[in-house]
């Protein structure tokens, strides 16, 4: 259900922009909305980060995934249980660049045998693999698009393009990332739809961004390989947008405006959705803090008062018993009574 609603939403966005552009509203889909989307994305993203940063981190609560730093003769595992800031940076880098926690993933299977149940933990790294492919392809494709925003095209973009098309298949040359990202989106989508437990937890806000990104990829691929859109015209147009001196959209096919509009939808949706894990992962207190509160004082920024049942009150409650049992007391019985 959530899947179909998301699909209809994305198809509606596609249709609106395609037919809108065809009907002469290129200025809306090609100019007004992109400007709004970029502004909305930047402001929304900054706001969200600000709103997180505003809440303090009162306690150091890293999840420790390895041996602590203790005796010299016990080898500690600083990447999974960092005790210094630099090791914590290392842990974060591995987490962000290699999805280390997801790499641990296992899948539980209960075998019901005659000899009783057997719980097995099978390695389940498909999610990790496809998530990694998805994110890196997305990054490469994003960077490749700098060729449309910059003149001359920066060297790293050329390098990326070369590497991405290194197998030299077809003309225009086939980018591996285009194929891989479709495979990854497909995997993530199929997993959501067909893995019963993942389907059960999935919301519209899980299917929608995935389908949206799928739509962006497909429209982009269509333009590059099938309709062979005039990329010079597109570049002139996009450069116009970026230099704040928009030019006429004459001669650019509606599919381009659809592609652009979907990207805008993604940008606008981004800060208010789960896609903000991009920013949030850097701020996650179970990962970005060293496990060092036994070594270094960490002050709770909201400094709550210290109130507790004091020893004096305790002794007042039990003094007679304590004296009788021969336990030392601070105030002897006779003085306490007085």
């Amino acid at each position: 259900m959530a899947f179909f609603i998301s699909l209809i939403l994305v198809l509606t966005l596609c249709a609106a922009s395609y037919y809108g552009a065809e009907a002469g509203m290129q200025w809306l889909f090609g100019m007004t909305i992109p400007y709004l989307a970029i502004a909305g994305f930047v402001c929304g993203f900054a706001y969200k980060i600000y709103s997180w940063a505003k809440s303090p981190v009162p306690f150091r609560i890293p999840t420790t995934g390895g041996q602590q730093y203790s005796h010299e003769w016990i080898k500690n595992d600083p990447l999974d249980n960092p005790h210094t800031v630099s090791w914590t940076v290392g842990r974060m880098l591995l987490e962000i660049l290699t999805f280390r926690s997801l790499f641990r993933n296992t899948e539980v299977v209960i075998h019901r045998t005659e000899d009783g149940p057997r719980v097995a933990y099978n390695s389940a790294r498909w999610l990790w693999l496809f998530a990694l492919i998805f994110h890196y392809c997305f990054l490469v494709i994003f960077l490749r698009h700098f060729r449309f925003f910059m003149d001359p095209v920066p060297f790293f973009v050329r390098g990326l393009e070369f590497m991405d098309g290194i197998f030299q298949i077809g003309a225009p040359r086939l980018y591996q990332t285009d194929v891989l990202i479709l495979a990854a989106v497909g995997f993530l989508l199929l997993r959501r739809v067909f893995d019963q437990k993942v389907r059960y937890i999935s919301l519209i806000s899980d299917y929608f961004p995935l389908l949206l990104i799928g739509g962006i990829c497909l429209s982009g691929i269509y333009m590059r390989y099938l309709s062979k859109t005039d990329i010079n015209a597109v570049k002139t147009y996009v450069m116009g947008l970026f230099t704040l001196s928009p030019v006429s959209a004459e001669g650019i096919a509606p599919i381009f405006f659809m592609h652009l509009f979907l990207v805008c939808a993604l940008l606008l949706y981004f800060p208010w959705s789960k896609l903000m894990h991009l920013g949030g992962v850097f701020l996650s207190p179970t990962r970005n803090l060293p496990n060092d509160s036994r070594m270094r004082l960490h002050v709770n920024p909201w400094k709550p008062p210290k109130k507790y049942h004091t020893y004096e009150a305790y002794e007042d409650d039990f003094r007679e018993f304590m004296v009788e049992a021969g336990l030392p007391v601070d105030k002897p019985l006779d003085k306490a009574d007085a």
């Binding site: 997180w52 303090p56 981190v57 997801l102 999610l127 437990k197 993942v198 789960k274 949030g280």
Partner: peptide, 16 residues
Amino acid sequence: RYRSFKIFMDICVRCG
């Protein structure tokens, strides 16, 4: 008061 709580409310992608 707790960034942990706020972030954990916002960033789950329900990957399962």
